[in-house]
Design a protein around this nucleic acid. Structure first.
Lengths: 340, 340
DNA sequence: TAAAATTACTTAATCGATTTCGTAAAGTAG
DNA sequence: CTACTTTACGAAATCGATTAAGTAATTTTA
């Protein structure tokens, strides 16, 4: 391995000079800098991050804590999009990303926090975890700079998608299209789900739809679970007084509904109106084009990255601790005017 | 920061003893080991990977080189599934993963190889890159342990999905269902695409279908591009002598075809038969269920991880340098018997 | 019982880069 | 021509952990 020592020897200068030359310090002459850089390239010198961060306590590495309950891992549209945007942004800012796990490195087991300390991450992004998990809490209560997605830890950074607004906007849109009998199949219990459901009930109260929307209209199906969505759709359609519009937990889940409608020879949106949530690619290619709420995943990843790194590099400054990103209603063709 | 020094002082032993105690060396007494571990936990000691790898030249960290031409990044079903499986497996084996980039760490720019040397990765997985890129070549020609997905670098490990077999199997299945006029919309040029197309022509020759399958039946549409697939589908249907069966570049692309058929009131598989490729989740939830070739993404990621780490830890041993994973035909309902 | 072996540590060098402090040489001012 | 700056570099400590080599104390062997 070629080290600064080798370059120094080859140039006839000291290691200190090589270090300063490569890092462009002001107290090294231009001639020397050029010579050192030239030789470094010639010898195939590469800096050593271990040595550097050992000395400086700066790793230029961000940990990502990401574990999907459904174990779909990185194949989860929403989260992988956020993560990808986060990755691109931190890389642009000169940082790398490494995934956090609690399996331990080498042979020794290690908690999430232990892993972060071990790797010396400058900061951490937490996304899509069971936030009540003991190890996650331990991490969140540590002194590390942390940004969480769709969750607020005490005194930590957070980036939210406007979940209240999303469902409210969607339901209101359905209302404006003339729908009153609006059913909502929401995802499995979580902080995000809670907010969405609350916001749906707020909409109901706001429009005085307590009579139109009975309890049976509110159902639950795991996120991204087509079969579960299909099952709940059947149940809704079999009600004596079925809804005219169904809101699904997410875009993917609508496929479950669509299959049921097809089997029953129901047309969208003539016989039944539906809407998804997320605004992932599939929403725009289904026929009819899905009406949905697009979450700004790219914006979320980017904001998380920028706010986190700003916090890391400037811990005293005025920080954006919490950022809420707007969602947008994507008007497809799946939610039509009632009676049209 | 709590270091071994602190633990050593608190225990009244030397730093060496602490190190050995924590690493379970045989020349430390059980009493001392217990005491040291106890104190370490008490003081909140965490090992320091920088110090460790500086000393041992072992990082227990694997670099992943992953850049999608289409810039869909981690949201790409196939690749993200391979990566996820790779991640899970290496973590089980005590390694972390970090993404490689060439934006440089800190402030200095850095090539892919430079980045790998800088971080001291023990090995690298290359997936889904333009393998002819100069920087990729530089990396692939280095002395680093490398495993590539669906590509063979000289003297490096590789894991393939059986691309020849896949298309051949699928086309043959269509043939057995009575189809002769089989069109193939293949993906954009790449090593993988080449293999698949070759294998299709092999099938044509094998069955003597040169007359049935004219040149116009072979078309090109970017992978995962619904619009492009739709366009090519239209073109195929508008031929004076249209095909009875269309093979698409991937599962997602079939949606483009499905939309076209819907618009033309054509039923699947009664009026037209189709098949996808990949076997991602969406294939199993579409109606009708898609006939497709399932690639063993989980197996690929796992094999890549196991072979790479085996190579790293045992460079002299007998290595599995190249592994080809079988694909399986998933019989859906989208490719039917002709004339039935 | 003396010699040999085993046990349980410690000492000190080392990995590669950064950084504070120091200093010789050259330049500038008075 | 002397005194003060400025420029350009070097010496050495340091970050935290590992490990070869050494050593004292204890146990075993002959």
């Amino acid at each position: 391995m070629v080290s600064m020592k080798n370059v120094a020897d080859a140039c006839g200068v000291s290691v200190a000079t090589v270090s300063k030359a490569l890092n462009d310090h002001s107290d090294i002459g231009q001639t020397t800098k050029d010579a050192v850089r030239q030789k470094a390239k010639e010898l195939g010198y590469f800096a050593n991050s271990s040595a550097r961060s050992l000395r400086t306590s700066k790793s230029y590495n961000i940990g990502i804590l990401f574990e999907d309950e459904a174990r779909s891992g990185l194949t989860h549209d929403f989260f992988s999009s956020v993560i990808n945007s986060f990755k691109v942004t931190v890389e642009k800012l000169g940082y790398d990303i490494t995934f956090i796990n609690n399996r331990g490195t080498g042979k020794l087991p290690m908690s999430f926090l232990g892993h972060c300390k071990y790797r010396g991450f400058d900061g951490v992004m937490i996304v899509c975890m069971d936030m009540r998990d003991a190890e996650v809490r331990e991490l969140a209560e540590s002194d590390l700079p942390i940004v969480a997605i769709d969750y607020q830890f005490k005194d930590k950074l957070a980036v939210f998608s406007n979940n209240n607004d999303g469902v409210h906007k969607l339901a209101t849109y359905a209302y404006e299209q003339g729908h009153r009998k609006i059913a909502y199949i929401h995802g499995a219990a979580s902080h995000v789900t809670e907010k969405r459901v609350d916001s749906f009930f707020e909409f109901v109260k706001e429009k005085g739809l307590e009579q139109d929307i009975p309890e049976e209209y509110i159902r639950i199906a795991d996120y991204r679970n087509v079969d579960a969505a299909a099952k709940e759709t059947e149940a809704l359609l079999d009600l004596p007084n079925p809804p005219t519009c169904i809101l699904y937990p997410d875009d993917f889940s609508t496929i479950g509904g669509i299959n049921v409608f097809k089997a029953r020879n129901m047309r969208i949106p003539e016989d039944i109106s539906i809407a998804g949530y997320d605004g992932i690619q599939i929403a725009s290619v289904l026929e009819p084009k899905l009406t949905t709420i697009k979450q700004d995943t790219v914006g979320m990843g980017k904001a998380a990255a920028i706010n986190l790194i700003n916090y890391i590099e400037n811990p005293e400054g005025n920080q954006v601790m919490t950022e809420v990103l707007d969602v947008t209603l994507v008007e497809g063709k799946s939610l039509g005017k009632l009676g049209k």
